[in-house]
Each structure stands twice: as structure tokens, then as C-alpha cells.
Simulated scan of single mutants.
Amino acid sequence: MGLRTKQAIAIVVGVVVAIGMLLLGLWQMSRFQLSMEDVAAERGAMPPVSLSENVAEDGTIADIYGRIVTLEGGFRPDHNLLVGTEWPMRSVVAFEMTDGRTVAVVVGTADRGATLPEELLEVSRLEGVFLGGDASGDGETVPSDAPEGSLPTLRLQSMVQTWPQPMIQGYVTVAESFSAEYGLGRADALLPEGQGTAMHQGYAMQWWVFAGAAIAFSIFVARGFAKDEEKKRARAERRLAAQAAATDVDAESASEFTGQ
């Protein structure tokens, strides 16, 4: 088998193995995403629970993240802000529960220039998905024409400084039907990443690293074939040189013998 053929086979095998490992990494991530969606759907399908009854006086929150919660009290429209990096932005309003604690509520999305509907003042009971604060969003910025005080992500630690206390460390996103009733756009519930996200991403990355290693190894093998071929050629040349030298010596000896 020729050198080029052996090198081509080594590279092709490496590429095939790498493609297989890339697909395994993608499969790993997709399976994890599906499992997370299943968990989120299961929690969202659970019966609603009272938010006030699941948040202790010391602020400890029961296992209700991702579940639908109910609240009773009233909105405090004097404490509101917009959240997002582009229009439409999420409209967040303070809701004071009957026990005196405050929770941030995403009532929908609003385009530039929109104002809070006055009808929100009449709301005394609502329900929505309870979530923790958004990811930090470092480096993200709000639109240049967003109102002062707007945030790129819903950072509860920033709001604690100015919103009524005590404030629950989590926020509620209402259903699309509620938002539509008050002329606002739909706000999706931004479910937090699961605890195993980084781990599963690591598993997927391992497969992709293995894929790169497979390509590198196939190149190494192909170069090894070339080096072996060079060594064989060098040995053959040395043999030929030795044979040629021996022939010259024999010829010289024969010439000397004939001359004598």
C-alpha cells in the first residue's frame, strides 16, 4: 500500500471518529436540555401554592422555584422598572402582599413610550411562575432610550436598595392571559439553569475535546507513516551505497589482479 493511501486512510478514520464524538457531545446536551424541559413542565403543572405560606419570616424559601404561586395584596406602581437589552422590555412592578412583604412581579412586556395601565391598581390577587433572580448579565446594557433606572437583567440585589422592605428574594412572572388583559405583551418565564448544567456541559465538552484529539492523532499517524517511509528510503539508499562501494572495491581488486 502506498504512502499517500495509508495517510489518507488514517485521516479519514480520524475524521469519522471525530464526527462520531461531536455527535455524542450534541446528543449529551440535547438529552440534558430535554430533561430540564421535562422537569420545568412537571413543576409548572403542579397545583398552585401560596407564596406567603412558602416563604418563612427569616426569608427562607421552600422548594417552589419554577412552580405557580398565588399572591394576595396590591400593586405599588410607584415602584416599577423596565428590564431587558432591547425593546419590548419586561415591565416589573412591586406587589405588596397582605402580610406586608414585597415581591417583584413581571406583568408583561412593553414597547417604548408605554405606561403602566391604571387597572393594575384594582388587582388584589394574581398567580404566576415563581423564579429566582436572572443571571448577572455582565457587560449587557439597556437600550439607549430606556427610562432611567432600567436594568438589563432582573437583579433583585439592585432593587433591594430602593424598593419597599422586607422584599422576597425571587420574582413572579404572570401568565400571558393576564398580560393581554391589561394590554401588555407576553413575558416568558426565564427558568434558571439546573444545578447539573455545568456538569453536563463539561461532559459534552469532553466529547468535543476527544474529537479534536482524534483528528490530532490521525495527523500524527499520517506523519508517522511518512517518517517510516523516509527511514525505509534512507536504509535502501545506504544499502545501495554499500553495494555500490562493494562493487567498486571488487572492480578495483580485479583490475589490480589483472594488471599483475
Rank of each mutant, 00 (worst) to 15 (best):
G2L: 11
L3F: 04
K6M: 14
A10W: 03
V12Y: 00
V15S: 01
V17P: 00
A18N: 09
I19E: 06
M21C: 06
L22G: 02
L23D: 00
L23M: 04
G25A: 02
Q28V: 09
S30P: 00
F32L: 11
Q33P: 09
L34V: 07
M36Y: 08
M36R: 11
D38F: 00
G44F: 05
A45G: 00
M46H: 06
P47C: 08
V49N: 07
S50R: 07
A56S: 11
G59R: 14
A62K: 06
A62C: 02
D63A: 10
D63R: 05
D63V: 05
R67P: 02
I68Q: 01
L71M: 13
G73P: 07
P77W: 14
D78P: 04
L82I: 00
V83M: 01
G84D: 01
T85N: 09
P88V: 06
P88S: 09
R90H: 14
R90I: 10
V92N: 06
F95I: 13
M97F: 12
D99Q: 00
G100N: 05
T102A: 06
A104E: 10
V107Q: 02
V107G: 07
T109F: 04
A110I: 09
D111V: 12
R112V: 01
A114G: 10
T115V: 12
L116N: 06
E118T: 10
S124N: 15
R125G: 05
R125C: 03
E127I: 00
V129F: 04
F130H: 09
F130K: 13
G133P: 13
G133K: 14
A135K: 12
G139E: 03
E140P: 00
V142I: 02
S150N: 01
L151W: 03
L154V: 08
L154Y: 14
Q157E: 15
M159G: 10
M159P: 08
W163D: 13
W163H: 11
Q165A: 15
P166F: 10
G170M: 15
Y171M: 10
V172H: 15
A175K: 15
A180Q: 09
Y182H: 11
Y182M: 02
L184W: 09
G185E: 11
G185T: 07
R186H: 15
R186C: 13
E193P: 13
E193F: 13
T197N: 03
A198W: 02
H200V: 11
H200N: 11
G202T: 03
A204D: 01
M205C: 01
F210P: 02
A211Y: 09
G212I: 09
A213G: 08
A216G: 14
F217C: 05
F220S: 12
V221Y: 00
A222Y: 05
R223Y: 02
G224R: 11
E229A: 14
A234R: 13
A234I: 05
R235K: 13
L240T: 09
A241D: 12
A242W: 07
A242P: 01
A245E: 04
T247S: 12
D250W: 06
A251I: 06
A251T: 07
E252S: 15
A254I: 09
E256Q: 01
F257R: 10
F257D: 08
